[in-house]
């Protein structure tokens, strides 16, 4: 899982099946150790109600859909699964990296 900063939100009036009730957030992946941007911003489905400016962690590929499977939270169970390839699954409260550069 990678760290990212929520930098915006994406609204689509017409979108693919299953993505209607899902919050789509624009996130900038960050390096875990340096907190510097790493890679291009991407759009991820949100499962924990994160807001702009928050530092989150997200999963990619198949696991992003698993994050929406059978989950009662914001979206009703039984709605079609969103075809997403990135999903935010947690908001970071804090981290400690004692092993930084330990080698």
């Amino acid at each position: 899982m990678r760290q990212a900063k929520v930098i915006g939100r994406v609204f689509c009036s017409r979108q693919c099946c299953g993505m209607e009730q899902k919050t789509l957030l624009l996130i900038q992946p960050l390096d875990w150790e340096t907190d510097k941007p790493s890679g291009e911003p991407l759009v991820a489905g949100d499962t924990v109600g994160s807001g702009a400016g928050e530092t989150v962690f997200f999963v990619a590929s198949r696991e992003a859909i698993v994050a929406f499977e059978g989950w009662e939270g914001e979206t009703a169970v039984g709605t079609p699964l969103p075809p997403v390839d990135a999903a935010i699954v947690g908001i970071i409260d804090g981290k400690s990296i004692p092993g930084h550069g330990l080698n």
Binding site: V48, G49, V89, I97, H100
Partner: peptide, 25 residues
Amino acid sequence: AKVIGNVWATRKHPGLKNATLLLVK
């Protein structure tokens, strides 16, 4: 990999409940 640290997050996906989050390199 080596575990270089850990992360704590109270608000996270139900599937990650009481999971220990470790940073590995």
